[in-house]
Design a protein around this nucleic acid. Structure first.
Length: 154
DNA sequence: GCCAACGTTGGC
DNA sequence: GCCAACGTTGGC
């Protein structure tokens, strides 16, 4: 089983939105970055767990945990002309973009802020991709040791 | 294949 | 809103 970190902008989709969704489940659509696509398509599997991270907001940080309930399948939003993430380059036969489904496992009692995570960047969380300067990848793997350490911060 | 221009991400 | 860091595009 693998661990991940998924970024979302709470102004467009927050953990509150996920909590209110049917079955507390959503499909993680709209990823249009090849590196993230490859992770989704090749490495994210049913049963994996991921931190949910709120980015681009007043308070940025990890707000909870989701579980992958369905592995990769072609992202339908890429085939929808009216969708802002529509991409005519793909086809049903040769899909370019993938999605997967997650269900809310639990919300943290408190947000573990980016600033707090950074205080451990040189030791316990050394090498964590989220903390690397200039990292913009919306889907990143999380090392098991980092995962455990962050859980203890809560 | 190079690289400048452009668009996006995301912290601040 | 600013801007640094990236990724993508497209001319050559």
């Amino acid at each position: 089983m693998n661990y991940w970190l998924l970024k979302t902008e709470p102004s467009s989709f927050s953990i509150e939105d996920l909590a209110a969704a049917p079955h507390k489940t959503t499909s993680w659509t709209g990823v249009r970055n090849y590196q993230a696509r490859n992770l989704i398509r090749d490495q994210i599997h049913k049963g994996d767990e991921a931190f949910l991270y709120h980015s681009s907001s007043e308070h940025t940080g990890i707000v909870g945990i989701v579980r992958v309930v369905r592995g990769a399948y072609p992202d339908p939003s890429a085939f929808d002309r009216r969708d802002p993430h529509y991409d005519p380059a793909g086809s049903a036969r040769a899909p370019r973009w993938y999605t997967f489904d997650v269900r809310l496992a639990r919300r943290f009692k408190r947000m573990i802020g980016l600033d707090e995570l950074r205080t451990h960047a040189a030791d316990a969380l050394a090498g964590m991709l989220l903390l690397r300067a200039g990292n913009r990848l919306s889907v990143t793997p999380v090392e098991r040791a980092h995962w455990r350490f962050i859980l203890k911060l809560e």
